[in-house]
Design a protein around this nucleic acid. Structure first.
Lengths: 341, 341
DNA sequence: AAGATTTTGATTTACGTACATCAAATTTGG
DNA sequence: CCAAATTTGATGTACGTAAATCAAAATCTT
């Protein structure tokens, strides 16, 4: 049988009340006694029954998700997944609230974070905007003992407890290798469609992509990045224009969220021209394009996994428990038309 | 606040004891009363607090994993993951036992399953061997109300509650497309190395692979399958032999677990010859081969995810709870050298 | 060594559910 | 309509932990 608080008391030769004081860090215990209890805990290999503890405390986990108010299908998907998580709240003892913050606005994000410091939720998940002020605000929360995880976009240099998202440099490299290998020996140009170079994940994807193309596929040259602001109209115009102006374009890497316009432009081009396309984010549109052959591969991060992982990690950190690293690693999914979910 | 049994009692106008009788299916409740309580449960949207219930019951989930006694690195990995799960048992209230059964021996598997019917564990996970007798044995367990999930290898035609594994036909098709696209316009032969065609997952992978090659890559022809029985020596000999006898081999699909021999054979061949290789299962060997360029892509199923998913599903089924389908879908991982974990 | 202070112990209640027991009420059978 | 059988209610204990209270003991001050 699993050891209980009673076993600790017996092993340490103290009363239940003292064990409780130590376990819950209540005052009024001498150093020596505290150490005696802690030794006993280690020796009998006690782990607190979190379920029983939560029952006794009537505990819930107030969690806050800070999200940019971006209007693209990935963010919509993320919101939907959070709503699903909220539906599961009674069972999971969570109490999830979302806070929307203007996209790419470090000051607004810092303000939101500072406000939460007073509120003291059990944990915070945020889609980070990369700026020194944000790093400082996050570190302050961490110092205050509030678990923080970054979601989708990481915050390097900060002491956040965890990052629930993919490695975007690796994603860019993977896209480059797929495109390069799919194109074989062909020589030509590659167009890159991004949302905005102000976003860290887009920058990182481009960085990885460009590096690997330069290193391993010298026959391919990358055209200046098209920044479509994840807007269908704009992306359509830019891609159509690029395809007509550069007849040597044989590949496209779409690393942002504005794939609707891209797909339209690709379908509009002459059917004689074969363009190999790698895009990010699996949506109804990219899925259809994958099936009809307009897109050759889709890289994806599963928003549902990211949200559930963030919640699991925040709860675990709040309880001071270990997380299963392998379980919480967010994988970069590669979809061809044959392994669609 | 979440409704409790007291709220049910109040809503239904009965006593707590009656609610308890209904909830736990104890006898001595009139039809009408039972229905009244059930209506109340639905109306106030009651969900049993599983944590509290388990606490009261002192419940643990006795689970049994039935595994083939195969000696390959994937199965070793699976065993390791189960051992990890056993370490988490105190926290997860599981009590996991593994049963080893001779590989590819339906009779032995049926015997093991029948034996478990008496033991009545809270759930059973099995690596299925595909045979009518096994289907019948599994269906009997299901009829007895014991949750059953298949692991790694499914059992079509049975009424198992869940399958924790990948779609192997899709895996074969994905391998075919990767190989076909990587080879571009080249014409030549493709060698397939399998463990044994007696194993369902290997058969299915081959089926998907051959179908897609025939359909979309007519310039490639598939050589007769090499059955290496997942043995390094044997695989080495067979592949080396095939490579020397068939000078037109430009691609290899290794769909089994015996990649050590394959890698050795590939490294032994003349360096002038370029062979594109897609293999299954990420191990230390395939990982190294991917990095040094001997292998071009690795398809993988994460044994840890499969085990944890199986456990979650079995517990949920035992409690009559819903599972999050998206969370329990085991994905086919595609690894290039750039997105290795 | 007396009193003040700190530390420890003993005990109780609570969380939401399970399960058992006994008494009371209701229904059923004859 | 009475007795027997069934159904329902009332109540208490338990699970492992949290949290509070009050008394007792130990330690510290001077």
């Amino acid at each position: 049988m699993r050891p209980t608080v009673h076993d600790i008391a017996a092993a340490a030769g103290v009363s239940l009340a003292t064990v409780d004081r130590v376990l819950n860090q209540r005052p009024g215990v001498r150093r020596i006694t505290r150490e005696k209890v802690e030794t006993a805990i280690r020796e009998i290999d006690y782990v607190r029954d979190v379920a029983a503890a939560n029952l006794a405390k009537g505990r819930t986990y107030p969690l806050v998700f800070i999200l940019p108010s971006s209007d693209n299908s990935f963010m919509h998907g993320l919101h939907a997944e959070i709503r699903d998580a909220i539906k599961r709240s009674p069972v999971e003892r969570t109490d999830i609230r979302t806070v929307e913050v203007a996209a790419f606005d470090p000051a607004a994000l810092v303000a939101a974070l500072d406000k939460l410091a007073d509120e003291r939720p059990a944990g915070i998940a945020l889609v980070a905007t990369d700026a020194p002020g944000v790093v400082a605000a996050v570190d302050k929360l961490v110092d205050d003992g509030i678990p923080v995880v970054t979601l989708v976009s990481d915050l390097t240099g900060s002491r956040r407890h965890h990052y629930a998202g993919v490695d975007n440099i690796a994603a860019g490299r993977t896209a480059a290798r797929l495109l390069g290998r799919f194109l074989g020996d062909a020589e030509g140009e590659v167009a890159v469609l991004a949302g905005s170079m102000l976003v860290r994940d887009h920058r990182e994807r481009l960085e990885g992509f460009a590096a690997l193309i330069a290193q391993e596929f010298p026959k391919l040259s990358i055209l200046p990045v098209l920044e479509g602001r994840d807007d269908p109209e704009m992306a359509h115009m830019m891609v159509a224009d690029a395809l007509s102006r550069h007849q040597r374009v044989i590949g496209v890497y779409s690393l942002g969220a504005g794939n609707r316009g891209l797909i339209k432009a690709l379908k509009g081009k002459g059917t004689d021209r074969r363009v190999t396309v790698v895009a990010h984010e699996l949506t109804v549109h990219t899925r259809a394009a994958l099936i009809d052959g307009t897109i050759d591969a889709v890289l994806n991060q599963d928003a549902g996994h990211e949200v559930r992982s963030a919640i699991r990690v925040l709860k675990a950190k709040a309880d001071g428990l270990a997380v299963i690293d392998a379980q919480e690693r967010i994988r970069l999914d590669i979809f061809l038309k044959d392994n669609l979910p």
